[in-house]
Structures are given as structure tokens and as C-alpha cells.
Nucleic acid binder design. Structure first.
Lengths: 225, 225
DNA sequence: GAAGGTCGTATTGTATCCAATCCGCCGGGC
DNA sequence: GCCCGGCGGATTGGATACAATACGACCTTC
């Protein structure tokens, strides 16, 4: 694996694992020092991460870990609901026993991670579950879109879901698998949509710690009072 | 607009307009010469175009205009069908009279371009039509996905749709608007899906001119005979 | 004491230079 | 005559050097 791919993987993992908080500055020189490479390859990695929407490159002001606004977080989860439910309609009829077994395996890993309190493993298992759910649809273009959304979701969960609850409750996944086993599309879609809506609703979208207080409101306060 | 953005826009336009055929080599030095910039900024532009899936960067072998295989072309249109039909379900209930008027306007432009035989304007109008169709859903994430697919479709149409027929027949668009006017989601979705399927079926997916003959088959021929 | 301006430092943006890789060409060998 | 290997030009990959921009601290002024 090339060095810039390793950097990308490292940074993405660090973001999902909450070691790199949204808004954290990613200086080119600093990263270059860490990995022993020049800024050229660092920029390449950062640019790629920006394409994945995990970091935000502000011209002349450096790269920071993407800091989704509540509205953006909302949009990402809405997008997932739309995309994944229609993707499920494509994939469900194509599922083989192998697919079902794989989903069971991932669910088990999810539960294990939950019991172990391993947040990173939980996020990874949840992502894998949703990826696997869509995989039988066999469309790499849509799969790539889903991949991007799952990555961004992981960041959002890391930022806004501060509770102890699992990022994606495995109970929902288990119930979803039951619906899937029947082979009926509509109930499975409904279950998936409800699950994603739950994830969305669990986010604490007001008052993220890293957001700067709204200066405009502060200034307008005195006049209003 | 910065110079690398201009380069990106120029190259994308040239691709859609068939001035740059799929497979065309985009050398860094050459582009740098044309725009009077160093290879650094050229690479940046090419990298961005690669993120949009319009060019393919092959390590150590330079960048070429994306040359979709028949299978990839098929996947892109299938992805559009899945994405756009579900997007339509979101956007249709949100449409305002302004949206309907805008769709009518774009359709008129499409027809005008068709009568003028302006292929570039046709492709642009068709893209705008589909974009506008999804816009009321008001989800910038999904809109961005659609944008990427529309761009890739334009390239595919330029490569595989060699007939005189419009890349996206405006008759289909007109019929679709009639369904949309009723406000019923299901018929409109069906019309949209049928339209996209038509576009897909019209592509001449066998024997693209630029594809190299399958060497493996040629070599195996004698043994078979 | 607060506001505004100016300078200094740090960081990013771009150009250029050197190294590594690839591709076509040529010659030798079978 | 065909295939394989080596050589040379061309092109990309990466590192460094320089220019431009932004941010923060300090100072001046009111």
C-alpha cells in the first residue's frame, strides 16, 4: 500500500475513532513530519480525504476535519434513507444464503463489540452491516455513494452522538434481518427506514460543543431586550 | 474563478462536447503549456476531474479521459434509475409553480437545441432537466450524487450513442412533465424509469470504436478452430 | 481601557528540480 | 523471421525552494 493511502486510512480511522475531533487542523508540514514525506504527498492524501468529504480544505487556510452543521448531518442521514431503501429493493431479491450468513456474522461482531464497549469496532461493524446489505444489488457506482455516506455518518455519529448508546443499535439490525429473511421488500424497507430515522433522531443536533456561539444573535440581543 | 477551476470546466465541457474522446491522453506538461501554469496546478485539476470520474489517472502512466466499459456504462444508468426515481418521490410533493415553470423553460430549450442540431446544448439541457427534477427534494448530498452521474452519463452518451437521436429524447421529457403535473408519484416514477431505460437501451454497447480488440480472444481463436 | 493599524511569523500555493518509471526502438540471438 | 533483452527519450512522482496569503501579537492612538 502506498504511503498516501496509508495516511488516508490512518486519518479516516482516527476520525471515526474520535481521536481526531471535527474542526481539528491538519497541517501539511505536521503530517509530513509524522510520515516522513514531503508536503506534496500530504496534499495528495488531504485532497483525497476532501473528495470523500471527511476533511474540509479551505483555500489558503488549511485543512480541517469536516465539521458538519446540524443541517448537513440531517441531509446525510436523509440521503442514506433514500439511497439505502431503494438499494434494498434491488439487493434483497438477489440475496443468496451466503449473503444472509455474512449478515449474521457481521451482526454477531456488532454485538460482541457492543458488549466489549469497543466503540470503534461498533462503528466499523455497523458500517459493514449496511454495506453488506446493499452489496447484492451489485452496482459499484451506488455502492461507492453508500460508502461515502457511511464514512460521513461515522464522523457525524462521532460528533453528535455523545450518549453511551450504540451508534447503530444492533437490536435494529437484528430485527431488520428478520424482515429480510422473509424476502418481502416493503417491510424490510420500512424497518430500514425506521432504523435510519432512529439514528438520525438520536443525534444531539443542538449545541455541538465545537460550534462557535452565534455572534450575530449575541449582538442583536441587547436591541431586542 | 481560479485557473484550475477554469481548466476543469474547460476539460469537462470538451468531453461532453466530444472534442475530447474517451481514452485521449491528458499530459500534464501539455496542459500546463496551454494554460501557462506549472504541472502542479495541472495535477490538481486532473485529480479533481478524476474525483468526478471524468478522467482516469493510471499510476505512472498519465491521465486519460474516462473510457467506460459497457458494463460501467450500464451501471451508471442503472444507478441513475434507482437514484432518480426515489429522488422524484421526495421532490414531486415539494414542487412549486416556479419549479414547474422552470421545467417547462428547460424543456423548451431542449427542443430548441434539438431543432438547431446543437448537440452540446442538447446534452446540457437534458442534464439541467434531470437536475431540476430532483432539486425540490432539497438535499444537496443526493443532488451532488446526481450531478456526478449526469456528468458521467454525458460522457457515456458521447461515447456510445452515435446515432442522430437526441441523447435524451425531449419527447420523453414532455410526457414526463404531463405525469408530474398530475402530482401522482407512481406514474411519474414509472415514466422516469422508462425514459432512463430507453436512454440505456439506445446505447450501442457492443464494439465501441475506441476499444482495443480483445487480444486474448484473438490468440485463443486458432486453437478453437 | 478599547479599537484600529502594522509588522512578524507561520502556513499554504506555486514553480522548478531531480529521481523513478514506462514505452518504443533497436540489436542480438535462437 | 520471430522473440527477448537492453538502451534512450519522454512522462510522471516526489522533494525542495520561493512567493503569497492569513493569523496573531504588539504598538499606537483616541
Amino acid at each position: 500500500m502506498s504511503i498516501d493511502q496509508r495516511m488516508r486510512a490512518d486519518i479516516a480511522e482516527a476520525i471515526f475513532d474520535q481521536r481526531l475531533a471535527p474542526g481539528t487542523r491538519l497541517s501539511e508540514a505536521g503530517l509530513g513530519e509524522i510520515y516522513g514525506v514531503s508536503r506534496t504527498v500530504v496534499r495528495k492524501a488531504l485532497f483525497h480525504l476532501a473528495a470523500d468529504k471527511l476533511v474540509d480544505i479551505r483555500p489558503n487556510r488549511g485543512a480541517i476535519v469536516w465539521q458538519p452543521s446540524p443541517a448537513e448531518a440531517h441531509e446525510v442521514f436523509t440521503a442514506r434513507r433514500v439511497l439505502e431503501t431503494s438499494l434494498l429493493a434491488e439487493s434483497l431479491p438477489c440475496m443468496t444464503p451466503t449473503d444472509h450468513a455474512e449478515l449474521d456474522r457481521i451482526l454477531a461482531a456488532d454485538i460482541a463489540a457492543h458488549e466489549a464497549g469497543d466503540r470503534q469496532a461498533m462503528i466499523r461493524a455497523s458500517g459493514d452491516f449496511h454495506r453488506r446489505l446493499a452489496a447484492p444489488a451489485n452496482n459499484s457506482v451506488l455502492l461507492a455513494f453508500l460508502d461515502e455516506l457511511i464514512g460521513r455518518s461515522s464522523l457525524i455519529v462521532a460528533l453528535y452522538d455523545t450518549r453511551d448508546a450504540a451508534p447503530c443499535a444492533h437490536h435494529d439490525h437484528a430485527a431488520l434481518l428478520a424482515d429480510i429473511a422473509t424476502g418481502d421488500v416493503a417491510p424490510a424497507q420500512a424497518a430500514l427506514a425506521a432504523h435510519l430515522r432512529d439514528c438520525q433522531d438520536r443525534l444531539v443536533l443542538d449545541a455541538p460543543a465545537t460550534e462557535t456561539p452565534a455572534l450575530a444573535d449575541l449582538l442583536r440581543g441587547p436591541r431586542r431586550a
